[in-house]
Design a protein around this nucleic acid. Structure first.
Lengths: 95, 95
DNA sequence: GTCATGGTTCAATGCTTGTTAAACTATTAA
DNA sequence: TTAATAGTTTAACAAGCATTGAACCATGAC
């Protein structure tokens, strides 16, 4: 995050919270946090108990707000949790 | 928070993030955090730039998820930010 | 080539949510 | 009692969102 107006920063911070404010997405993030290695789509979908189609939808939103990054290896996709972004967003509320 | 199942706790945590995931509500919380004393409805509404009716709607949701508490003094209402609840929700993401 | 696997996109559906304006209650002031 | 202030509730509307199933596109195995 290089430079950003105060309100734009607030909007962005809100978009991260919004992404976390959906139980399924929160479980995706929690699952990724519980692991050491990045996870494939099938792994996440199975663990969270949703279809791949729905996973795609949710990960799109998590990627959009910068919480996740995606990388392709052959036909499988690997998702990585951006811990720094998460910590930075939350840092506003830690004294 | 006395006792709660793992999934119920996750749902509740999500509800807090959801409340914070709306720019107007995030500004309400930020404003309350920037102050030392509790704030009246008119103060908050003026600072955030919304009507009292809309403020009522948003504070209802913030009270619902335990982030705010309300107290009445005469005809004015005073809102208090529950910093502990906020810190507890966010603590999951701080190593 | 054919087939299965892993993921993505699309369209449709129904539910939720943010916002507005108007009506309403309770308290304080004149 | 009348009027203003502070907040609440309600109804209504548009916009957004989560979910589903089907179609689609690559990649890898046979």
């Amino acid at each position: 995050m290089t430079r950003m107006s105060r309100s734009a920063a607030a909007e962005h911070r809100a978009s991260v919270f919004k992404a976390l404010g959906e139980p399924t997405r929160l479980r995706i993030v929690d699952y990724l946090r519980s692991r050491t290695r990045d996870a494939t789509g099938t792994e996440i979908a199975a663990h969270v108990g949703i279809s791949l189609a729905l996973l795609c939808h949710h990960t799109d939103e998590l990627v959009e707000c910068g919480l996740l990054t995606k990388r392709k290896e052959g036909q499988t996709s690997l998702w990585h949790l951006n811990g720094d972004r998460l910590a930075a967003t939350v840092a506003h509320f830690v004294d």
